[in-house]
Structures are given as C-alpha cells and as structure tokens.
Simulated scan of single mutants.
Amino acid sequence: MKNQLVSIITPSFNSAKSIGATIKSVQIQDYENWEMLIVDDCSTDNTREVVQAYADKDHRIKLIARKWNAGPAVTRNRAISCASGRYIAFLDSDDIWYPEKLTKQIEFMRSNDVAFSYTSYRRVHVDGHQIGFVSVPKHVTYYDVLKTNRIGCLTACYDTEKLGKVYMPNISKRQDLGLWLKILKRIDKAYGIQECLADYYVGISTVSSNKITAAKYQWRVYREVENLPFWRSLYYFTTYAYYAITRRV
C-alpha cells in the first residue's frame, strides 16, 4: 500500500499565544495519518515549551529547534527536508484548519490524480471577527499565479510521489509564491477546492504596511527568482497591483 502520510510544515517564531490552537486544529482532523513538523526559529518567548508539551503527549508532533534565526523560508525548508510523508502541507503557527480539511483535500488529490492543490479560506482578525472570504478558482497555471496568487499557504498541499520534495526560495517574503511558481513550471495546473477549509488570521493595523512590503517582494520574485525581463515583470506587476487594490488580497 502506498504511503499516505501527510507531513505538515509549521514554522514558528514567538507564537506561544497562538500555536496551541493551531496544533489542536491538526489533532482534531478526521484524517489521522499525519506528522506535524514544527520548526522553531529561535523564539524568545516560551513557544518551544508549549510545543514540547504537545509533542510529549502526541508522537505525531515533532519539535525541531533552530540554533539561529534564519527566517520563514529556511525554517520551512528545514521541515520539508525532515518530512517523511507522501504529501507536504503547510500551516503557519497562527492559523487553523477545519476538522475535515485533510480528508477532503487528500481524497480530492487521490481521486483526481492531482499533484498540487489548494482550498478556499477565511481571513479572520486576531480578535475573532471575519474580514473576508477568499474563494479560489478551480485551477490555476503558472501564468495565472504570476498575475495574482490565489493559493493561500495554509491550504496548499503537494504530492512528493509526483513531484519529489520541492523547496522554497530563500527570500524574506513571498517565498510561498516562489514555491508555487517552481511547482507550476513542472505541471500544467494546480487544482482548487472551492469549499472553505481553513482560517487565516491577520491584524488589521498592519495591512497597509504589509501590502507595501509584499509589493516589493512581488517584484523581487519576478526579477530575481523567476528572472523575467523588465517589461514582462512590469506587465505582471501591474496586473498584480490591480488585483491587490480591487480585490484586497
């Protein structure tokens, strides 16, 4: 029988207040064949102690403690390198999955022979009120994602049996976008599940500054990661900016 283990990639940094809820959302999954690789990037709070307490009671949870702070790309890649599962899924330390998320996504991938998938999700403020709903298209290509990234990192899952292990580019922001583009160069499409299966938590006070920073790194992905010519980069960046303004994503 083929390995159906799902390796969940979770970077953490000073997430003691939120990571418990994240872990619990994995533990209540009705799909039970998973491992959760939590790589702590030198937190200065008691994140490691919180995670270790869960790991002591559940062997599927594994804490990997980094000795120096390297940022989310290196941290996620460390977890990917340690992963044993056929499927690689991503969940950050302040987000949550719905209980049926893995069951529905893995069954969707298996029954439709899909190498890379994602789902719809909610955007929720840290105080609990809903900000918006991100509805995803049924499929996207490399060129679609260059224009606007509709794949939420907390919903993405890829099949290592079809793709091998694929790693994120080492940039401070938009490393998930870089990974999606890397995968989509190798396959025709990624496929979406329209059902909402996760909650992405944000703080409203930082949205404007985050968008400015995100735009800078979006440009870097075009020029430094994808090595696109200037005018082609400008075309995709203009499209990205339009979507970011009109759709607020």
Rank of each mutant, 00 (worst) to 15 (best):
D30Y: 09
A83I: 13
V166F: 01
F108M: 09
H125L: 07
S12M: 11
R122E: 12
S120L: 08
A190V: 10
R78K: 15
Y236K: 02
A79F: 02
K211E: 14
I61E: 00
Y191P: 05
L163E: 10
I131S: 03
Y243F: 12
D188M: 12
M36G: 02
E35C: 08
D144E: 02
K17M: 05
K147T: 10
T239K: 08
V136E: 10
F13T: 09
H125Q: 03
G203N: 10
P169G: 09
R248L: 11
K165H: 04
A198M: 08
P229R: 11
Y54H: 10
V126L: 10
T213L: 00
T44G: 01
D188Y: 13
K216F: 12
N69V: 04
I38S: 10
Y217L: 11
Y54R: 13
Y243W: 06
W231L: 14
Q175K: 05
R220T: 11
L181W: 05
A156H: 00
R78L: 15
R66N: 09
W97H: 06
V51F: 08
S84Q: 15
I245V: 15
D95F: 04
A55T: 03
L63M: 09
D95N: 12
V51M: 00
M36V: 09
K165P: 01
W97K: 02
S111R: 14
V51A: 00
I171S: 07
S205I: 07
T75D: 09
R66M: 14
K101T: 12
Y222N: 02
L234I: 13
Q175R: 05
I96T: 15
K2G: 00
V126Q: 05
D127E: 09
A83R: 07
D176Y: 08
W34A: 02
T238D: 09
Y142M: 02
K24S: 06
V249E: 15
C42N: 05
K67H: 13
P11G: 04
K138P: 04
Y243P: 00
T213M: 01
S81N: 07
E226I: 04
S15I: 01
D199Y: 07
N14W: 03
N170M: 07
K182Y: 03
R48I: 13
I212A: 12
N227I: 03
F13R: 14
I80C: 09
S43T: 07
T213F: 00
K211T: 12
L234F: 15
Y118L: 00
A115Y: 10
S7Y: 13
I8E: 03
S117W: 09
S233W: 07
Y143D: 15
R150M: 10
D127A: 06
D144G: 01
G128L: 00
A156P: 00
R66F: 00
L37Y: 14
E49W: 07
K101N: 09
V26I: 15
Y235Q: 03
R122N: 15
I88A: 05
T141R: 13
V124H: 02
T155Q: 00
L197D: 06
E161M: 14
A55H: 04
R66T: 07
T213R: 01
S93P: 02
N69T: 05
R86P: 08
D144I: 06
D94G: 08
D199W: 05
G20V: 05
L102K: 01
I193D: 03
D176V: 11
